[in-house]
Simulated assay, not measured.
Amino acid sequence: MPKSRGKPKSIEAHMESSSIEEPEESVGTPIPQEEEPMRDEAVPEPAPSAESVQSEEWWNATASAPDWDQPAAEHAPAEVIPRKGLGMADAYFCGHTSLFPLSRALRAIANERLTGLLRSFWEQEPIELLARDGEIVFVTTRDLNLYCPEVPDVLANVDVVVVERSREQQRESGTPFFLSLAREECIALDAATELMRQYGQKLFSELWTAPRAWIMFEKNPDLLSNVADVPGDPNVRDWALETLRLVQNPDQPPSFDPASIPAYTKDGFERVQKLKLTADEAQFASQFNGARSVQQIAKNLRLDLKSTQQLLFRFLALEIVECWPGSTAAKPERQTFFQRLRRSRQRDR
């Protein structure tokens, strides 16, 4: 029984789409020259015979067979994206601190064990934090007046010329001059590491109160190839809290209200238990119940408002708590059934 007239046309359309998908196989297939004008002039095709239909179906099946037999790996190179080299700098995250806080950036470095450089751009010279496998190696800047304006007393026995040469190297490359002195065996590496930690934390603490700061983390293992001998600080949580303790007079936002109520964030209560808190910080954290205001907490702990704001600033910066506006309208006292009944009888009299 002869098939419908549209059947051979659909086979040709399928052959045409197959030739587009696999240009290598269609190169050797001769295409009659008269088919192109037939498409342009829309000349009706004659009714095919059963033999021609069978022949075209057999040819179509033969042409499509390589699609099933061909391995999928031969099509993969067309979709492969070239991979960057390991030594190429790669921006992992960036943003303004008002939208991407410093504490969140430090948690990302620790949780994902990142290796690279965290650059902080603000009103002064950029501050750079080097991290290796989620550990903080050191914090530095090229501005010596910002990093260490005066030479510490522990370097009194070191040659002044050597110290000044090391400080000049920091102005050029950003390498802490304490590390340069240790490389020249002027001081021990342990002493240099402790000095870099002390001055690095003091430097990083300036960013907590910076009004406008923009941060960017670059994944670049090559940046730490020259500091393989410097140990890192694995406890990023306590490292960040120590930098917050160095902030003496934190500026509260203009919208800060002492009547606001601090409450734990989604994972704040879980994270605060992992911190090494001081006695004052632990007592302050125990007052967060979602109902006490800042004024009430200060009254309970017998703290002045300035000390209370300083403690609250640390927990807010670490995103452990967030402040909610206090209720201005007093809620009506809830009465029992008998109280409402007694009051209704008094009104009836």
Rank of each mutant, 00 (worst) to 15 (best):
M1V: 07
P2T: 13
K3A: 13
S4E: 10
G6K: 10
K7A: 03
P8V: 05
P8S: 09
S17F: 00
S18L: 11
S18G: 08
I20N: 04
E24S: 12
E25N: 11
S26H: 12
S26F: 10
V27T: 14
P37D: 10
P37I: 10
R39K: 15
A42E: 06
A42F: 12
P46M: 14
P46E: 13
Q54I: 06
S55T: 07
A61C: 03
T62C: 05
A65E: 02
D67Q: 03
W68D: 13
A72Y: 09
A73Y: 10
H75D: 10
P77C: 06
V80F: 07
P82T: 03
A89T: 12
D90G: 06
Y92Q: 15
F93K: 12
C94G: 09
T97W: 07
L102D: 04
L106G: 14
I109W: 12
T115S: 15
L117H: 03
L118T: 11
L118G: 05
S120Q: 09
F121K: 13
E123H: 14
Q124I: 15
E125S: 15
E125P: 03
I127K: 10
L129E: 01
R132F: 06
I136F: 01
F138I: 01
F138D: 00
V139L: 08
N145Y: 04
L146Y: 05
Y147H: 15
V151L: 05
N157Y: 05
N157S: 04
V160H: 03
R167Y: 02
T175A: 00
P176S: 03
F177S: 02
F177T: 00
S180T: 10
S180K: 01
R183S: 01
E184S: 15
E185Y: 11
C186D: 00
I187F: 10
A188T: 06
L195I: 04
L195A: 02
M196V: 09
Y199F: 12
Y199S: 11
G200S: 10
K202I: 04
L203P: 05
E206D: 14
R212M: 11
A213Q: 09
I215N: 09
M216H: 02
E218A: 09
L224N: 13
N226G: 13
V227L: 08
A228D: 08
V230F: 13
P231H: 14
D233N: 14
N235H: 07
N235V: 08
V236Y: 05
L241V: 09
R245D: 11
L246Y: 12
L246S: 06
V247Y: 13
V247A: 05
Q248K: 09
Q248Y: 08
Q248E: 14
Q252P: 00
P254N: 08
S255I: 13
P262Y: 05
Y264N: 08
Y264P: 07
T265K: 14
T265C: 10
T265L: 08
V272P: 10
Q273Y: 07
L275G: 03
L277F: 04
T278A: 09
A282Y: 00
A285V: 11
A285M: 02
S286T: 00
G290R: 14
A291D: 08
Q295G: 06
Q296V: 02
R302K: 06
Q309A: 03
Q310C: 01
L318V: 01
E319F: 02
V321P: 01
S327W: 01
T328L: 07
K331L: 11
K331S: 07
P332I: 04
P332K: 01
Q335F: 04
R345E: 02
D348K: 14
